[in-house]
Nucleic acid binder design. Structure first.
Lengths: 258, 258
DNA sequence: CCCCTGCTTCGCACTATGTGCGAATCGCCG
DNA sequence: CGGCGATTCGCACATAGTGCGAAGCAGGGG
């Protein structure tokens, strides 16, 4: 087909082009015209229109009547909904998080491990006890500086952790962040022993976080339930928070399907 | 490639296969293995693995370390997020809906017109004033029996409305549902004149709904703000509700970008 | 009323791209 | 060490995908 190498291209090209179209259209708040898409992707019009027809046929794209621009369609919404289910963000689970929040008066988080990423599946907070910084529902960088991140790493063996660090590095976010591989390894051992991860001012100043593992029926660690508090409150509340988080994680585990 | 015709196939097949894989994986709460996918799609392994590699490369699919099953990846979430933006479901807009709900003590809805579909972009309700039936955020069938549906139809010309009815029909949902094309046309004229749509027990028994149009800066009607109340309350509150809904729609319009 | 300008579809010729099949590897478990 | 699933590789074929150019449409000014 075309001449020279395209960047990034690994695999089926027409599939990749289709995906790129979706991303492009999604990135434009009001959608794009066929010409704009063809232009930005460097495709001929024939090709572009055929691709667009396919995406439209399956409702991944739609267009307002009369308008000449393509916008994301309902299938995108359906996929997103399916993702929510895979993230275990069901109503009963949300209820557990809410109860946890109400019990400890601190924001509560449900995170799910996904490959090398961490997905924040749900947050129960309130105006009085706002969530951590800019953390929001969606995918987040997995990090060794968060309690749930440690839990995720602890669910793997040392070799896998080493590979992970090689890929992602061990960034220093605060003065307390752990950047030494050996220190981290020791901590992960402790996490495995306690089945609990704690983080104190390693991710954001003045903040601490406690996380307990969520397990699938098969016993696999698939995510974490956690709460964050001001680090100065941690010493006096550690015992209470640990109990609450452990219970929350247990309750969520009981409500997880596969 | 393969032999006989496949159902539905209109357009680029590898793109369609990629999309079908995403749907398949999304439909399985705990993901699928490569073999299962190949099997259900009737594809050879070579092809399947190549397709999977592509989807994984672009983060539409991911897999747990060690696991042999594919799950939806972060790109799916990103697309869904992009859709939210296109649906105008931004924080300032949500705030308007919340204020509207608090003012009238009734559930408030923001709907966005998308092709022939209606997307429920946001709902502001409360335990005291629950939302309409099973209506939830996401795409919904456009219907001439809802206030926002009438608004959507009213934003088109008679020919387009006729075409729509031909495609979707005019189903009777309650005793009051309008099923006669001529009657509907007259009502839509009235909607255009008043820039307001009302529905009384046409969608669900005992429920009434009032909707006002949201306009893009260009003046195009792109959606609706609406509230629903018990139909027995409508007569006494009509004036108040109309004012509140009109104001809400105006405020949302002012916060819409393109 | 008709031309002009963008959007969209069509037809065609070419071959790169996607494909199936089978075999080779890999990785894990017993 | 043997066996079994998962995954990759190699190869030959032709289909599916592509670009280009031209033909339809639709709409908006003049």
């Amino acid at each position: 087909m075309s001449a020279v190498e395209r960047r990034g291209g690994a695999g089926i090209q027409s599939a990749e082009r289709a995906l790129r179209i979706l991303e492009l259209v999604g990135a434009a708040p009001t959608g794009l015209t066929a010409a704009e898409i063809a232009d930005r992707l460097g495709l001929g019009q024939s090709t572009t229109y055929r691709l667009l027809a396919t995406l439209q046929h399956d409702d991944y794209l739609a267009r307002q009547p009369g308008e000449h621009r393509y916008i994301l369609g309902r299938s995108v919404d359906e996929l997103g909904r399916a993702l929510q289910v895979q993230l275990v963000a069901t109503d009963p689970v949300r209820a557990v998080l809410r109860a946890l929040h109400d019990a400890v008066h601190a924001p509560a988080y449900l995170t799910v491990f996904r490959g090398d990423d961490i997905a924040v599946a749900h947050i129960a907070d309130s105006p009085d006890h706002p969530r951590i910084g800019q953390l929001h529902v969606g995918f987040a960088e997995a990090s060794h500086t968060t309690a749930f991140g440690k839990l995720m790493l602890a669910s793997r063996d040392d070799a896998a952790v080493a590979r992970f660090l090689e890929r992602r590095g061990a960034a220093r976010l605060t003065a307390s962040s752990i950047t030494d591989a050996a220190t981290l390894r020791d901590q992960l051992d402790e996490v495995r022993a306690q089945q609990l991860a704690v983080e104190v001012e390693e991710y954001l100043p003045k903040l601490a976080c406690i996380a307990a593992p969520v397990r699938s029926p098969a016993g696999r660690v698939v995510g974490a339930v956690s709460v964050s508090v001001s680090s100065k409150d941690l010493p006096s509340r550690a015992w209470e928070l640990e109990r609450a988080v452990r219970r929350g994680a247990w309750q969520v585990s009981a409500r997880v399907a596969g």
